[in-house]
């Protein structure tokens, strides 16, 4: 990152997005046929990019510890599996997750800033963030103030991200746009540019609490914004689609899209994540199928 003061970009100059064209492009990604070794490589990569997530009011330390066990022991019967990238929990559960994950190399990500609505004063959002970081979160998933964004109050949205970024310290900041509430791909692209200019390390589609959550057209629009930011500033920003990606085929389509939009540099968990809870087992099932030629029942895959 340059040391320059972050500045709100002129959103009127963000290139427009044609929805019909985006959907056509997405259809091309979906028509790619991924076979044999390239399929196994893609599935393994997808597995390593997962932020294994539980974000429920009913979360308990016990539930979080179970999830952390799953994160470290995805499917013991298969050798040499990668681990997931992170476990994503509420701030109150960060210390539990941190303890449970130990030295596994799996990061703890925490949502913060009055997730999922973001309807709280800035001071509360910053406290929320600091608490999560202090408890051991290496990654913070914040939500933007959608109300302010839709009302045209971009300064508020921008300043909040800048402030949360400062509160994060060394923790990586993922900025959730909650695209299902933004209303158009033009707005998604503008919000992406705003978030990146404010210092986001990652931009993320959704909280998972709003339908639609991640979609390929939305993700493509955000990938284009990431590319524009990179070409203009040299700063690489990561992407995290979250919510609704539950099967391997869809995950592979997302990777095709990433591969053909941002290229090789982004094809790593450092720069791309899937926010998902049930994707991992479907990927494991497909990996078993590739290895053995047979599908197994979901009862053969641990569910935590």
């Amino acid at each position: 990152m340059s040391a320059a003061e972050p500045r709100l970009p002129d959103l009127a100059r963000v290139t427009p997005v044609d929805t019909v064209g985006v959907e056509e492009r997405v259809a091309r990604f979906r028509s790619r046929s991924i076979k044999t070794a390239s399929k196994v490589a893609g599935l393994r990569l997808a597995l390593s990019m997962i932020d294994l997530t539980t974000l429920e009011g009913a979360d308990t330390p016990g539930k979080v510890r179970q999830l952390c066990a799953k994160a470290q022991h995805l499917h013991e019967r298969m050798a040499d599996l990668p681990t997931v990238a992170a476990v994503c929990v509420y701030p109150t559960m960060v210390s539990v997750a941190r303890d449970a994950l130990g030295a596994s190399g799996i990061e703890v990500a925490s949502v913060a800033t009055a997730f999922p609505s973001g309807q709280a004063p800035l001071s509360v959002k910053l406290d929320d963030t600091r608490m999560a970081v202090e408890a051991g979160a290496a990654e913070i998933d914040m939500v933007i103030a959608r109300g302010a964004f839709l009302a045209g109050d971009y300064d508020t949205v921008f300043d909040e991200i800048v402030a949360v970024k400062a509160a994060c310290g060394d923790a990586h900041l993922k900025v959730i746009l909650e695209t299902g509430e933004l209303g158009s791909l033009d707005r998604v692209r503008q919000a992406s540019m705003l978030a990146m200019a404010a210092g986001a390390d990652f931009i993320k589609t959704s909280t998972g609490k709003i339908k639609p959550a991640a979609t390929m057209p939305v993700t493509l629009t955000m990938l284009h914004a990431i590319r524009d930011h990179y070409l203009e500033t040299g700063v690489q920003v990561g992407m995290k689609p979250a919510g609704g990606i539950s099967d391997s085929k869809t995950a592979l389509h997302y990777l095709v899209m990433l591969n053909e939009t941002l290229g090789a540099e982004w094809m790593t968990p450092r720069w791309f994540r899937f926010g998902a809870s049930s994707l991992a087992n479907d990927v494991l099932m497909q990996l078993e199928k590739q290895a053995t030629g047979r599908y197994q029942s979901l009862d053969y895959f641990s569910k935590d």
């Binding site: 044999t36 390239s38 290229g263 090789a264 094809m267």
Partner: peptide
Amino acid sequence: KSTLAFEPGWQYD
């Protein structure tokens, strides 16, 4: 001046 690199990427069989 940053550029995107598509090779060596994920190659499809």
